[in-house]
Design a protein around this nucleic acid. Structure first.
Length: 881
RNA sequence: GCCGGAGUGGCGGAAUCGGCAGACGCACAGGUUUCAAAAACCUGCGCCGCAAGGCGUGCGGGUUCAAGUCCCGCCUCCGGCACCA
């Protein structure tokens, strides 16, 4: 029945423009030296966190950030910037390999298929990527340079082999790095992990800890993200102090402490159960108990340890240490008998002390540390009071002084904090630290020390689908593969599954493993592969110079494009990816290969797109398929039970996953882009509401109809737009305000309010449809272009705009049109709005006040005005009695 | 437990520097058009109240002529860290 069809047809215009942009390479970025490069243009590098192409295809979460960077890219181009906006694939890694195993295919094939799907889906959304710069981390032309950079790390002494215990995940068949393990379980798949010693490649990121920390201050990231980076690096300033062990001449236990000032209050010492001295110092009487505790601790998973964290456990070793403030460990029996001797403290072991942090041993000061206090209470150890606080709470002061309550505040030390040579009595924390460290250094019993929580980066996996290391194991040790033999490619293997042993499946590629070293002697290739984060730690550099066959990226290219001006992605990479990328960039900077050590100047985390789900009375989620609408309610289709709507993650299990392809098919890509930007602030998590999508689609249709009549034949435009005419001043004003608002809102990444401003304009323009001019609609198309590029480009073409809209400059705003001659101000009496008054915009206070008095005359009658407050151009407030 | 962020109509959200709370969209209601429906367009729409008016930004206090916004004390939700000495 519908000969009368809407003329806005995204299915027709979107592919048309996508093809056009692609064939003409409209979004190709020019490097210095390229033909057509304009050196007068400033540059702008807008980057998305490149996706991991999974078999499941694109999720609606992907286009959210991608649309944001696309809007900024298109806007920057219109503002005269040379814009680099690339896209690529994070293609190596565990999930691809596991998918391949599950589907009985080869990861090279499944990855290629996933990339094809992702690219097709992305192409349908009209993003202005320079597809000539597309890269894949699994492409030998790319990972050749990943291997080359790894060699630089090795040559700079930043890559080493280690047999230290590492996180091993049985289910994944590989080791994992710290940030891939959460509470003793794998981040991917949530499988249990345990610590095991295995030969691994490790990168010395800790050598860069201080710079990684310091440079956090100079990037434009959210405070919470910067805090996460700082906390992961975890700098602590303090001291290392040596304690001699009684009865073991020359044996010292070194502890790390952030509170060397509290050394006078050390009443026992705790070693981690894994500490190397435990076996040596344990007395025969305590040996059985200690062995049992050590064994129990080692079999406990990290998870069990943290679950039991409330209750402290530990065992006495039987040994004693000597507080270095009170030296002279007794050499003979007689002295040892003096149990009261000052500074003689018992050595315990407990699993609240972690072997990998600090020195794996602590001095316990229960008076100044909550954990030590709890331990001392539980095991009846002494709690010498060391502080003498003087606050308003004298009862608490007394308890602290007596060692009955723990105190971690900065309070003065009490009078007995002296050993005759150094005294901190009456001093505060900072001065006392200085005094104690000074004395220890002078006596050679300790030193100031900075420690970091950051651990070296475990950089190898026992899996097939990753970059091979450019390393040979020869009779003479490790030998690097020469640059001219890079890349070291993966051997083709039909069976690449992990073999249930800690060795990589590459061990079975015998011809590949067996090779020759530089001298022609038998050698073996490294069989571990690099972790998923290898390629993503430098891909942003390759985008600057993606086809360079001689270098990973020329200095000229990176000097021009780097740093990334806007980087958008999810918070899940807040620690790992960002820290690793910063580390590699700094190493490359030290090698003179890039200018700046910070890759990402501005970083923006998008929120998660959530979805509705329905819960029954017991709180169980009912899959969307099993629900139905009944009036205003949603009920269980089978039982009719009324359900409660909740907001949650999209999940197959709940059946609430939204597929971008479906949205494009029904409404078009412009609607999808617009809806995702209109949902709310980019940084917030917010639920997808299918009922809201038609709202933004309607807005696009209304925009369209300003140019093309609803049911026109052949899609011709309104007659009055076929020639130029004077601009209607009212509409002109509204248009300039819209341009100004959209401009400012894109700048602050407030895309939702920019769209609202355009909606307001379209609503006004619709009411004055026949007064619109061609010039006004061309300019409207220009502001709409970053958001709904296909529709805008089509309108531009139909209105016979000059050239291509994608290359048109941003429309000019006349500041004079942003102000009205007359404005309405609010008039308040005692802070309540009681009326409004129209006054000339630049009226003086007397004019404003008399207009305001007239507007609220009835409220002022019989009252005395005590005070008159005039806020220019906003309001007047009368304070009356 | 500690560190971030948030809490505003039936819903998503707006209020950018302390100055008219609820822009814009959804849902809903009424209307125009239509044989009818859809679409489109127009109008209304925080809560209580017939109205005048009162109340209202998680809760309780405070500062101010004026508080969603600032201060103090709580509650709830989300994210991160979690015995790091």
């Amino acid at each position: 029945m519908s000969e009368q069809k809407q003329t806005y047809d995204p299915a027709a215009i979107e592919p048309k423009w996508q093809r056009f942009w692609s064939e003409r390479k409209v979004f190709q970025a020019k490097n210095p030296g390229d033909p057509g490069f304009d050196e007068k243009q400033p540059k702008f590098y807008a980057l998305d966190m490149f996706p991991y192409p999974s078999a499941a295809g694109l999720h609606v979460g992907h286009p959210e950030g991608y649309t944001a960077t696309d809007i900024v890219s298109r806007w920057k181009r219109a503002k005269g910037f040379n814009v680099l906006h690339p896209m690529g694939w994070d293609a190596f890694g565990l999930p691809a390999e596991q998918w391949a195993i599950k589907t009985n295919a080869h990861p090279a094939q499944t990855t290629a298929d996933s990339i094809t799907t992702f690219k097709r889906q992305l192409m349908r959304l009209g993003f202005s990527y320079d597809w000539d710069r597309e890269i894949s981390t699994a492409d030998p032309k790319f990972f050749r340079w990943t291997q080359w950079i790894w060699k630089k790390l090795y040559e700079r002494g930043l890559a080493y082999e280690s047999n230290a215990p590492v996180w091993w995940c049985e289910a994944l068949g590989t080791v994992l790095s710290n940030d891939e393990v959460i509470n003793g379980r794998s981040e991917r798949g949530d499988h249990p992990c345990e610590r095991r010693p295995l030969r691994q490649w490790v990168l010395k990121i800790t050598e860069y800890a201080e710079r990684l920390l310091a440079d956090v201050d100079r990037v434009d990231w959210s405070e919470s993200l910067k805090t996460m980076q700082r906390e992961w690096i975890g700098k602590s300033e303090g001291a290392e102090v040596d304690f001699e062990v009684h009865g073991h001449a020359g044996t010292k236990v070194r502890v790390f402490t952030t509170r060397p000032d509290t050394l006078f209050g050390a009443s026992f010492m705790v070693l981690s159960p894994e500490h190397p001295l435990v076996a040596k110092i344990t007395t025969p009487a305590q040996r059985a108990a200690v062995d049992a505790y050590v064994k129990a601790a080692s079999s406990k998973s990290e998870l069990e340890r943290t679950e039991l964290q409330k209750d402290k456990t530990g065992v006495f070793t039987g040994a004693f240490a000597q507080n270095p403030l009170f030296p002279g460990a007794p050499a003979n029996e007689r002295e040892r008998a003096l149990a009261s001797m000052r500074g003689r403290i018992p050595i315990w072991i407990a699993d609240y002390v972690i072997v990998t942090y600090g020195t794996g041993a602590i001095m316990a000061v229960p008076a100044g540390d909550e954990r030590d206090f709890a331990f001392a209470k539980k095991f009846g150890l002494p709690i010498p009071g060391i502080f003498a606080p003087k606050t308003n709470d004298s009862e608490r002061d007394a308890r602290i002084a007596a060692g009955e309550e723990c105190c971690t505040d900065d309070v003065p030390f009490g009078p007995h904090n002296t050993n005759g040579e150094v005294s901190i009595a009456g001093l505060g924390m900072a001065a006392a630290k200085k005094a104690v460290i000074g004395w220890l250094v002078q006596k050679g019993r300790g030193e100031a020390k900075v420690t970091y929580k950051l651990r070296d980066w475990l950089f190898s996996r026992q899996r097939y689908w990753g970059e091979p290391f450019p390393v040979l194991h020869t009779q003479g040790g490790v030998e690097l593969v020469p640059d001219e033999q890079l890349p070291v490619e993966l051997p083709h293997m039909d069976d690449f599954k992990p073999g249930g042993t800690p060795e990589s499946p590459l061990i079975r590629a015998k011809e590949w493993v067996a090779t020759k070293d530089h001298a022609g002697r038998a050698a073996q290739r490294e069989i571990n592969t690099m972790p998923g984060a290898a390629g993503s730690s430098w891909y942003f550099l390759r985008f600057c110079d993606p086809t360079n066959a001689r270098e990973f990226c020329s200095r000229a290219a990176s000097d021009y494009w780097m740093p990334v001006d806007l980087y958008v992605g999810g918070t899940e990479h807040a620690v790992g990816h960002l820290l690793y990328s910063r580390f590699w960039t700094k190493v490359l900077q030290d090698g003179g290969f890039v200018r700046d050590g910070e890759p990402f100047q501005k970083l923006y985390n998008q929120g998660m797109i959530q979805s509705f789900a329905y819960q029954d009375a017991r709180g169980a989620v009912v899959p969307v398929k099993e629900t139905k609408e009944q009036g205003d309610d949603v009920v269980h289709a089978a039982t009719g039970e009324k359900l409660t709507r909740i907001v949650t993650k999209m999940s197959k299990r709940y059946g609430n996953v939204v597929n971008p392809d479906d949205v494009v098919a029904e409404y078009g890509a412009d609607t999808l882009r617009l809806y995702e930007m209109y949902m709310g602030p980019l940084a917030d998590s917010k639920p997808w509401n299918p009922k809201d999508v038609p709202g933004v689609h309607r807005f696009l249709q209304r925009s369209w109809r300003l140019v093309v009549p609803e049911f026109s034949e052949n899609g011709t435009i309104h007659a009055h737009l076929r020639s130029d005419r004077p601009d209607d001043p009212e509409i002109e004003k509204a248009l300039h305000r819209t341009i100004h608002k959209v401009d400012g809102d894109i700048e602050r990444m407030a895309f939702n309010t920019a769209i609202a401003a355009m909606m307001i304009f379209v609503n006004e323009a619709t009411k004055a449809m026949d007064r619109l001019s061609r010039s006004q609609l061309l300019r409207y198309a220009q502001v709409l272009q970053p958001f709904a590029p296909h529709l805008a480009e089509e309108l531009w073409e139909r209105l016979a705009g000059d050239g291509l809209l994608a290359r048109a400059p941003w429309p000019k705003v006349d500041p004079a049109l942003l102000v009205d001659d007359e404005i309405e101000i609010a008039v308040q009496v005692l802070g309540k709005v009681r009326g409004h008054a129209k006054v000339p915009t630049n009226a003086g206070n007397d004019v404003v006040l008399s207009a305001a008095r007239a507007a609220v005359a009835s409220y002022l009658e019989g009252k005395t005005i005590v005070k008159e407050i005039v806020v220019p151009k906003k309001l007047v407030n009368f304070v009356v009695k």
